[in-house]
């Protein structure tokens, strides 16, 4: 299941890259590309003079070999210049030219950002979902669900600037914005909140539905009949059953955060994996771009798989035989 999907994803990105818009040789040579001799030289150095099939097999080899190839900036020229000029802002470690190191280095930043967003979501969205369920069909419920729809419908590149304007200009809570200064800097707060608004509705809805379904169940009455404190009734008997769909969707949310941090990174100028993807797409640094896409596809496929397993682990009724 995993391997064939990944290979096909590779084939698609590679084909698109092969017939793609930006000639890697031109990207490397810049103005010099009209010099036919230089052109042929670089083309050979990049291995682009070989047939498509050979190139693809070679590409698969480097990917599965764990060494994901080299950024075009390794060959000097415009691509690297552009990458450097694009790489403004703090925290860039733009020195490595190994695709793997570039992707993993940037992924670490996106992962930290996603982690905060996830913390924010699990605390805040689950609480709101429980509240909406308990206050079912009241104004509070209605307000929570509607505002979650609003928060999740509006894209990050609208919410982001609006929050910036509010919390930097109108009520100056934050002074420095943009860039990345580590996970525990104040700069991480706003981007994490903006990132969390996307999947907010999913979590609120799932939590609400889960709790509502469990509220009237006989086993909750049994738990109360034992004289358990309400806290334990909710925590032991309701939450676990109600949270199974939420936890499984948290898996998908996590991969969604990692791949969707693109806009947040663009707005707040955070050198994460999404920003790397856009930079390399624009500069024609295909080896890196393909590395990002492949890696994200891998995350998505793996998370889908893990979600199924997690579901089995949480719900004793599901057995694998």
């Amino acid at each position: 299941m995993l391997a064939p999907t990944v290979i096909i994803v590779m084939l698609i990105t590679f084909t698109l890259g092969y017939y793609g818009p930006i000639d890697p040789v031109r990207a490397v040579l810049g103005e010099e590309w009209e010099d036919e001799l230089r052109y042929a030289e670089v083309k050979k150095a990049l291995g682009l003079d070989r047939p498509f099939v050979i190139q693809f097999l070679d590409y698969m080899g480097t990917m599965f070999g764990g060494n994901w190839g080299q950024s075009l900036s390794a060959f000097g020229g415009v691509a690297s210049d552009r990458a450097v000029s694009e790489g403004r802002g703090a925290g860039f470690t733009g020195t490595s030219t190994s695709v793997r190191e570039m992707v993993l280095g940037r992924l670490a930043i996106s992962a930290q950002l996603s982690f905060w967003a996830l913390v924010f979501l699990t605390v805040f969205a689950i609480l709101l979902g429980v509240l909406a369920a308990v206050k079912q069909n009241t104004t509070i419920d209605y307000a929570i669900v509607t505002s979650s729809i609003i928060a999740s419908s509006i894209p990050a590149y609208v919410i982001g600037p609006v929050l910036l304007i509010i919390f930097v200009l109108k009520i100056p809570v934050f002074k420095t914005v943009g860039g990345w200064d580590g996970m525990f800097s104040r700069q991480a707060i706003l981007p994490a909140i903006v990132l969390a608004t996307g999947p907010m509705l999913v979590i609120v809805r799932q939590t609400r539905a889960g709790i509502v379904e469990v509220l009237g169940k006989d086993f909750v009455r049994t738990a109360r009949a034992k004289g358990l404190p309400e806290r334990l009734v909710v925590a032991r008997h309701m939450l676990r059953t109600a949270m199974i769909p939420v936890l499984t969707s948290l898996g998908l949310v996590t991969s969604g955060l990692l791949t969707g941090s693109l806009f947040v990174e663009q707005i707040f100028n955070i050198p994460g994996i999404g920003k790397l993807a856009i930079q390399t797409l624009m500069s024609g640094d295909h080896p890196v771009f393909m590395g990002v896409v492949l890696f994200q596809a891998l995350i998505i496929v793996t998370v889908n798989l893990l979600t199924d397993l997690l579901y089995g682990g949480l719900d004793p009724r599901v057995t694998y035989d």
Binding site: T5, I22, F289, V292, Q296, A297, I300, V301
Partner: peptide
């Protein structure tokens, strides 16, 4: 399945860059 496996906005961005050239 395969289309779903891609990060969709990146794939769309990539296709539009390729497609624009064509």
């Amino acid at each position: 399945d395969i289309t779903m496996a891609f990060p969709d906005i990146l794939l769309a961005a990539f296709i539009s860059v390729v497609f624009r050239e064509k």
